[in-house]
């Protein structure tokens, strides 16, 4: 059974891009366009093996989403990768404090995304 990666990003092109890259590498993909939608899907029973989230989203931002997810039962140890244009160290520290697993700066090269995904989910 391939691992499921949950992409949370308000950009349709980034969603599409990462989905295609991950699917081609054999992963299953679920998507949400906002933090709120992501929380709803997770509360609705979605159990991804990894979450990839943007930081800058309307409404609930990525950092808030990470905090919310970490507070939910069953998601304390789910890897959460931040993928964002944000590059300031202060924000990285904020993500780390919220218990994110890693940080990638957009635009993400396909090889980099797959390398990290396979590092976190070695069994695919």
């Amino acid at each position: 059974m391939p691992s499921t990666i949950f992409i949370v990003d308000d950009s349709a092109t980034t969603q599409m891009s990462m989905e295609a890259i991950l699917r081609k590498a054999g992963f299953m993909v679920a998507k949400a366009a906002s933090g709120e939608e992501a929380v709803t899907k997770l509360q609705g029973g979605l159990k991804p093996n990894m979450i990839i989230t943007d930081i800058h989203m309307p409404g609930m931002n990525g950092i808030e989403l990470i905090r919310k997810v970490r507070a939910m039962a069953g998601f304390q140890f789910t890897p959460i990768l931040v993928v964002t244009t944000e590059s300031q160290q202060a924000k990285r520290d904020e993500a780390r404090a919220a218990k994110a697993t890693g940080w990638l700066v957009k635009p993400v090269q396909p090889d980099d995304l797959l390398k990290v995904a396979k590092q976190i989910l070695p069994n695919g």
């Binding site: 950009s11 980034t14 599409m16 891009s17 244009t85 957009k106 635009p107 993400v108 090269q109 396909p110």
Partner: peptide
């Protein structure tokens, strides 16, 4: 794959 990666330019 490379083309898909470049699509993120729209987001940026």
């Amino acid at each position: 794959i490379g083309m898909l990666g470049q699509l993120q330019f729209q987001d940026v």
